[in-house]
């Protein structure tokens, strides 16, 4: 039996953490409860974040969208601020699990789980998301790319909590594209995914390109070589193939039950071709 605790303030939460340092933090529980059930039973308390008002909700400040870490994905997908300022994130979040999962699963949970297949991660890398981390007596801010250190591994320190995700507004990228390839359309873990932020000149040339692939390495792969091959050019098949070829060389996918390494490399190279159709 595990005690289950519902702090409503950060002070109460850190008090629990101080006295029960082995307690686990639970946001939506959609990953954690599956993992706990697979492992041996223990008595480590669960600290549920769902009643912490401060961790739930979306605001803007200084050209930044601030998303509480325990905000459910369905709220993020439906949020007008997110849809306007960083639609890329809404598109990726909409591919996680199914509707009921998205009512439970949170953005902070997707980040702290740090799965190589985490669907919201490639967008967060491209959007230069910064994470607010709080401990009992200190706070710090870390870029997402520095926070995620490996598959399932983060820089989250003992006694520390992810409280919010800060996303600089990104309307200047007129093309915000996310595509996930899975074994089926819903309830699928990504075989590979591509997130793209593209700013075009009025003449239709790429002024700025950001590209990141998910599920094809221990962490999200952002490929500056692929981005460089788009910059200054039009999104023709030839240009997009060149970007895909650069990315193919940059990724390090694994063989697993979902797909082979070779298939994933082909996907990585081919996914940018959709950007031609998206313009």
């Amino acid at each position: 039996m595990r005690p289950v605790l519902f702090p409503t303030t950060l002070a109460a939460l850190f008090d629990i953490v101080e006295h029960q340092p082995d307690a686990r933090l639970m946001a939506g529980g959609t990953d954690l409860l599956v993992r706990l059930r697979q492992g041996p039973a223990d008595r480590r308390p669960l600290i549920c974040l769902e009643r912490m008002a401060r961790l739930n909700g979306i605001t803007t400040e200084n050209n930044t969208v601030i998303i509480g870490a325990a905000t459910p994905l369905s709220a993020i997908i439906a949020d007008p601020l997110v849809q306007r300022h960083c639609p890329l994130l809404a598109r990726a979040a909409a591919t996680v699990g199914g509707p009921a999962i998205r009512n439970m699963a949170t953005l902070g949970g997707n980040i702290c789980t740090a799965s190589p297949a985490g669907d919201t991660l490639p967008p967060l890398y491209l959007l230069d998301a910064r994470l607010d981390l709080a401990a009992a007596h200190a706070t710090r801010q870390v870029p997402i790319a520095a926070f995620i250190t490996g598959p399932g591994r983060t820089d989250l320190r003992s006694g520390e909590l992810l409280t919010a995700i800060r996303i600089p507004m990104a309307e200047r990228f007129g093309l915000q594209h996310f595509e996930k390839v899975g074994r089926r359309n819903a309830l699928a873990i990504a075989v590979a995914s591509l997130a793209a932020l593209i700013r075009l000149t009025p003449g239709g040339r790429v002024a700025e390109a950001r590209l990141a692939w998910g599920s094809v390495g221990p962490c999200v792969v952002r490929c500056s070589e692929a981005e460089a091959r788009l910059t200054g050019r039009r999104l023709t098949s030839e240009t997009l193939r060149a970007a895909g070829a650069a990315a193919r060389a940059a990724v390090t996918p694994i063989d697993d039950i979902r797909a082979t390494t070779a298939y994933r490399r082909d996907l990585v190279a081919n996914l940018p071709l959709r950007l031609g159709a998206a313009t």
């Binding site: 519902f6 529980g29 959609t30 409860l33 769902e50 369905s74 009921a100 999962i101």
Partner: peptide
């Protein structure tokens, strides 16, 4: 809102 009863604990 829809939720999955297999991924919730009673205290919630």
């Amino acid at each position: 809102r829809t939720r999955l009863a297999c991924l919730m604990v009673a205290a919630q």
